[in-house]
């Protein structure tokens, strides 16, 4: 069973992402919801994580800082990260990819877009 962390301060956004994950065939995954990057980081340290989906604009610890933390940790650096944001643009996307994010997708998220973004991870099974 895959372990997926979803970090977004909005319960609505998390619910939407979970629904999209179910639609694209990841309904059986263990999904850990967190409201900000700090809790997501703590959850990632608890057990190996197959995928980290994070918003950018969050209180306490934003998504960009979360990407930096995860990618600078020898234990966590292999965790695939997909950033889902309403504040995305090509320049920001390039910056996040440079930091180690695997993909950046814009809100509103939809099942086909999420499917396409996660194809590489889904193909592994």
């Amino acid at each position: 069973m895959k372990r997926i962390i979803v970090a977004d301060d909005s319960a609505t956004a998390r619910m939407f992402i979970k629904r999209c994950l179910q639609i694209i065939g990841l309904g059986d995954a263990e999904i850990i919801e967190t409201e900000h990057g700090k809790d997501a980081l703590a959850a990632a340290k608890e057990a190996p994580t197959d995928l980290l989906l994070t918003d950018l604009n969050m209180p306490v610890m934003d998504g960009e800082t979360l990407v930096k933390w995860v990618k600078s940790s020898p234990k966590l650096c292999d965790t695939p990260i997909v950033v889902i944001t309403s504040a995305g643009n090509p320049a920001k996307e390039a910056q996040l990819i440079e930091l180690g994010a695997h993909r950046v997708i814009n809100k509103p998220v939809s099942p086909p877009v999420l499917m396409e973004a996660l194809e590489a991870f889904l193909d592994e099974e």
């Binding site: 609505t12 309403s86 504040a87 995305g88 643009n89 090509p90 320049a91 814009n106």
Partner: peptide
């Protein structure tokens, strides 16, 4: 929360559509 997420998404799309392709923005 729903209203916030709707506005957050609308604002991001609005700025993306309004600005030049590579222009960064912050909300």
């Amino acid at each position: 929360d729903i209203l916030h997420e709707l506005l957050n998404t609308v604002a991001g799309l609005f700025m993306t559509k309004l600005l030049a392709e590579n222009q960064a923005f912050q909300i």
